[in-house]
Design a protein around this nucleic acid. Structure first.
Lengths: 333, 333
DNA sequence: CTGAAAGCGCTAACAA
DNA sequence: TTGTTAGCGCTTTCAG
């Protein structure tokens, strides 16, 4: 067995109570006593036992960050800030990947297989609104992204509609008239439909027609972006003068296809993406893209979760949409 | 308080022992009894308490994956497989970020602040060989990457030297003679020096001189890659006919600088990176790059750690170097 | 096959 | 300011 508090107490000639006080930085320990205890800890190589503490406090100090995919850039950019914020509030973060599997997402909603985490922040992709009712009562939970579930679940959203509208306005302001929307359809998420909505609103606002032939279905990957544009060109249909890709991957795929067919970007076709991945600044041409304030998302989500965990009511609004910036670069000028 | 085994036992009219047997899928429970217990669990919404179990078993079921940075692609590509492999062996993964901070890395080496994890897989960047002696004895640990520490610490390595040698051979075989090495220096890691070594070995093998002026220092980022090439061009020094960038980011930065100065890749300068990030297949031109077998790394690391945790001796070699492939693409043909 | 009961290491109420 | 002590919920030894 490992060294326990009792061993330390004995070595330091005090009671476990005092050792506990020292370990937890409580007041009311005489400096001299504290020193002796610290010394004994050092000497014996004492390390507190997380399990025992959790059991006693009925809190593990762990929160879950549940994401669909490790490789998605949104994950990479969100995880850092989430971990940082969480640590600042005294939590550690257990990262869990669902692969967008509905069963796994439901699992989280219902509080997990075992009581390992004090709460969860989840980017759910496969849940349905009515799943909200299956939430385990009392398990602190914050949703990120667009998934709004039934029941009053805390939620931090990306400004999909607003940002898409801003993209259309930008393109129209530079004289583009035949806008293609790339990525509509198969993905089928809330996210996609909100971006579609902003796109349509933008067209309406500019008095432009919504041309079905220019709303192209595609999974959100480079390969599919490339393929979609390739097929469009091969079919002989006229090109749009601007493409709004629902994410940057699609945009890069499209860019590759355009280049292979000798289409000039932005002279003949303007191109805009969504997410503002690092690569956007370095591609040829550099890519105009929507940059959501992910740091703010992380901060809000953690703060909301923390309040639920410590049971503070907080007058905070349970639904927040963060800010965004449209980074205009070479591909749309 | 949450529902405990006692509650379930009472509801099912059995003893806690039996409930435990059911929960842990032990034998010797009559089907009828099992059914009753399962029913009671369902009805009461029983969820096992991880803390109590850990305390009793003196194992948390958690292993730590310790990485320098969330956004590094190597992390993204390693984390998925590690989590998968770990779950297959019954562990869950707690991800920890060190920001390459030596203190934090040492912390891990010494077993962590509290006994939260049963062991750790670490990509250490800032540790020094002699730090190996500070390892907490008995804490299962596997290192990933190049950092070899003193003491007999299990270790899975990337084939830096071998792969760099292969890159040089490839470039030489396509007629290149003045090779630049980009990324040498500041990064200062084992990784960098092994890649340098392979580069030099390759030159020697081909009977080419090692030209100091063509070994350019740069942090491993796009920005620095771009800047380094820019400065080289501005200085009026003659260009090399091939550039081997120590990672893909550097290569993309270099590519951008070359393009801005009208240098044709690969006609005038061939370009090769290291890591084979997804982007390499989609850049213009697509990038030749070294692709280490990260899945294998993950699998080996988890297997090694698992054996340490369960205390199986295993005849396994404690130092493994995984395989790699050189993906030859447009940038070097 | 099932029951009773002893702790795992820690926190915190209560006492001194 | 410090000591004593009762559990937190679970696994597991020992008995039936």
């Amino acid at each position: 067995m490992a060294v326990s508090m009792h061993d330390v107490a004995r070595a330091a000639g005090v009671s476990v109570r005092t050792v506990s006080n020292v370990v937890n930085n409580f007041a009311y320990v005489r400096p001299e006593t504290r020193r002796r205890v610290l010394e004994a800890m050092e000497e014996l190589g004492y390390v507190p036992n997380a399990a025992a503490r959790s059991l006693r406090r009925s809190r593990t100090g762990l929160i879950a960050l549940v994401v669909p995919d490790f490789r998605a850039r949104i994950f990479a950019d969100l995880a850092g800030p989430v971990v940082r914020e969480a640590e600042a509030l005294g939590h550690r973060v257990l990262i869990e990947v669902t692969d967008s599997d509905r069963e796994r997402e439901l699992q989280v909603l219902m509080g997990g297989r075992n009581q390992l985490t004090d709460g969860a922040i989840m980017m759910a992709l496969s849940l349905r609104p009515e799943d909200g009712r299956r939430r385990r009562p009392g398990y602190p939970l914050v949703l990120m992204g667009d998934h709004v579930l039934e029941g009053d679940i805390h939620h931090v959203a990306i400004p999909n509609r607003e940002a898409s509208l801003a993209v259309v306005r930008h393109l129209v302001s530079t004289g583009r008239r035949r806008l293609m929307l790339l990525g509509h359809g198969p993905h089928g998420s809330e996210t996609a439909s909100m971006r579609l909505r902003g796109f349509l609103d933008g067209l309406a606002e500019a008095g432009l027609p919504a041309d079905e032939a220019l709303m192209v279905a595609a999974d959100w990957s480079r390969a599919r972006g490339r393929q979609a544009i390739e097929e469009h060109i091969d079919s002989g249909r006229p090109l749009p003068d601007a493409i709004f890709a629902m994410n940057d991957s699609l945009a890069f795929g499209a860019l590759r296809a355009l280049r292979e067919h000798g289409v000039l970007v932005p002279q003949e076709v303007a191109l805009v993406g969504f997410d503002d991945v690092e690569e956007a600044r370095y591609s040829t041409p550099s890519l105009t893209s929507v940059s959501p304030d992910l740091e703010a998302m992380a901060a809000h989500a953690v703060a909301m979760l923390h309040e639920q965990i410590i049971g503070k009511p907080s007058g905070r609004e349970p639904h927040i949409t963060v800010d965004f910036h449209l980074r205009v670069r070479e591909s749309s000028q």
